[in-house]
């Protein structure tokens, strides 16, 4: 078990899309471990370390709202770009009015989480990759508000305010009481085989606002 950090993540909107409802997006009730990992990696990540989420505290009541937007249904095609690079006379753009889709998203409102996480060294770690070094870098970045890019709550239009909690006793108490079963939730994507990326799921149970996230080896089938 490497060094742990505790961060508080807040935002006015969030969208942790359920994989089974992706067209008209519907968010999970709480942040997924994979989104939490993405937030920490936006602050600090190196190939030598791997972040693991241990606990998620939910500090606000769960509430949803709806947003519908015009979106495009097509993506940029690499093959098309390569052909035009070679001089093919083809149009190279997306006509937003022709490929328009209006999609609704059911997003979370006013979220506030505390995330407990630690990192393990990977096999890419060199001899001078000590845990203390990486731990100190991530602490320094969090204290100074430095980051690689702005962390977001599921999608990039919903930025996250990230602050470091130095002391475990400073974690605010959650107003949620009792045991709540959130059903099967996305844990993370298994990138161990880059040609066959598999989603992993876990049974999320929230007790008094705290979700204890299982270890990756327990989730991996």
């Amino acid at each position: 078990m490497g060094y742990g950090i505790i961060i508080r993540v807040e935002g006015s909107y969030a969208l942790f899309t359920r994989p089974e409802m992706k067209v008209e997006r519907v968010s999970y009730d709480v942040i997924t471990p994979s989104a939490a990992r993405g937030i920490i990696e936006a602050v600090y990540w190196k190939p030598a370390i791997r972040w693991v989420i241990d606990k998620i505290h939910v500090l606000r009541e769960i509430q949803f709202t709806n947003i519908r937007r015009n979106e495009v249904s097509s993506k940029a095609s690499v093959d098309n770009a390569l052909q035009v690079m070679k001089g093919a006379q083809k149009p190279l753009y997306i006509a937003a009015t022709e490929t328009r889709q209006q999609r609704a998203a059911m997003v979370l409102k006013d979220v506030d989480y505390v995330i407990e996480a630690h990192f393990d060294l990977t096999d890419k770690a060199g001899p001078d990759d000590t845990q203390e070094k990486h731990y100190n870098v991530v602490l320094r970045r969090l204290r100074n508000g430095q980051r690689f890019h702005t962390p977001c709550l599921g999608t990039r239009e919903f930025p996250a305010k990230v602050t470091l909690i130095e002391d475990k006793d400073d974690i605010p108490k959650s107003p949620l009481v009792g045991k709540r079963d959130l059903g099967y939730m996305l844990y993370d994507l298994d990138f161990s085989n880059p040609r066959d990326i598999q989603p992993m799921f876990f049974r999320a149970v929230m007790e008094n606002g705290v979700i204890v996230v299982p270890k990756p080896e327990e989730v991996r089938r």
Binding site: N144, G145, Q146, R147, V162
Partner: peptide, 11 residues
């Protein structure tokens, strides 16, 4: 001043 930033955005 730096590319990683010198202060938290919300502040």
């Amino acid at each position: 001043e730096s590319d990683l930033g010198n202060a938290p955005a919300h502040r």
